[in-house]
């Protein structure tokens, strides 16, 4: 089948290119999971063209996974500075609620309003963390708890529906046969990668995450950079919120983005970025997010009950995390050859 002809060589090439890089293990896990589905889950790889767009479970994985992928981009930078943003799920709910509320006014106003409040939410977190030096986990916990209430206020506690084609397109439309959300994710990824890898910003972020005091003494603008990464996480959460609301053509303030902050953190960690800050893996986070979504969809497709579905999910995640643990890998290496002299220095994306 065409899917096989495209997918497996691509995966093999990716694995080969990354054989010496931290991206390897999440890619291996994703490849194994896909292989498992290829062999044992009938219909998982079935693709057809319906209404001029690709239609199939793999396409759903990309579309449904886009929210966590977007969140993971912002979360990666926040975690790289040694912080964490727990409020992204609630920010999604606020952005979706504002968009639905303003849907009747005009499309630019609705989109701008949704993204605007998300930027504000990010700026609020950034302010608390950088100017008031509140611990990130507490600073963002505030908005995580309060944000859903704000979203409820915006929607009056009701589910608000909207039908505007442009807003519906955002989460359901297709571009060149593929979900538009995929283009959105790739666009945001390219933009972020450009910002952090083609300017000194990425280096600043890693330096701050490694040792903030040292970074400040060398003259890095530590606080503005920290402020900015939270604003960026807010923007990503806003986009994810708009996609989530668009997906179901309504703003469900109670449930949009619920617990997704945890999936985003998981995606970042599985992707090879340490929670302690410093070096980060932007592409790894995307692979991590894809892995989580593929797992979820696999469990639906195999009819695993939701009450036990968390167990296989936890096992796969645990396996990936263990594979990445430097301690475990050093132990495994020492089993193979006697007394390793030094751990190989790992390259980055």
């Amino acid at each position: 089948m065409i899917v096989d002809l495209v997918l497996w060589p691509t995966l093999a090439a990716l694995l080969w290119v990354n054989r010496r890089r931290p991206l390897l293990w999440p890619l291996v896990a994703l490849a194994l999971l896909l292989l498992f589905n290829r062999l044992f889950t009938p219909g998982f790889f079935a693709l057809e063209i319906r209404d001029g767009r690709l239609y199939g479970t793999l396409v759903d994985v990309l579309n449904q996974g886009s929210k966590v992928m977007l969140l993971a981009l912002g979360m990666t930078l926040v975690i790289a500075t040694g912080g964490v943003d727990l409020s992204v799920g609630a920010t999604m709910a606020i952005a979706g609620a504002v968009m639905a509320r303003l849907a009747g006014v005009s499309i630019p106003v609705a989109l701008g309003g949704g993204l605007g409040v998300a930027l504000l939410a990010g700026a609020w977190n950034g302010l608390l963390v950088s100017a008031f030096r509140i611990q990130p986990i507490i600073a963002t916990l505030i908005l995580m708890v309060a944000g859903r209430g704000v979203a409820q206020l915006v929607t009056d506690g009701q589910i608000i529906n909207f039908e505007q084609p442009a807003l519906v397109y955002l989460g359901n439309g297709s571009l060149l046969g593929l979900p538009f959300t995929l283009a959105l994710v790739l666009g945001m990824f390219a933009l972020t990668a450009l910002l952090v890898r083609r300017t000194a910003l990425g280096l600043f972020i890693e330096a701050i995450g490694d040792n903030e005091t040292a970074a400040r003494f060398t003259g890095l603008p530590a606080r503005p950079v920290k402020f900015l990464v939270y604003v960026f996480a807010g923007l990503c959460a806003g986009l994810a919120g708009l996609v989530a609301a668009s997906n179901i053509k309504s703003a469900d303030a109670n449930h949009i983005g619920l617990y997704l902050e945890l999936d985003a953190i998981l995606a970042v960690v599985v992707g090879g970025t340490a929670l302690t800050g410093g070096r980060f893996q932007l592409a790894g986070s995307l692979v991590g997010a894809l892995l989580i979504q593929t797992l979820g969809t696999t469990l639906y497709a195999r009819n695993v009950g939701a009450d036990v579905a968390t167990v296989p999910k936890a096992i796969v995640i645990l396996a990936v995390c263990l594979l990445q643990s430097p301690v475990l890998r050093a132990k495994l290496a020492s089993l193979r050859r006697p007394a390793p002299t030094a751990l190989r220095k790992e390259g980055s994306v």
Binding site: G43, G56, T57, D60, A244, N247, D252, N254, H255, A306
Partner: peptide
Amino acid sequence: QSGDFTRAKGKEVMETFLKSP
């Protein structure tokens, strides 16, 4: 399969149902 009483999950699970053999 559980859709958690929400629209988003209801949609996601139904997508998977429809694509199964």
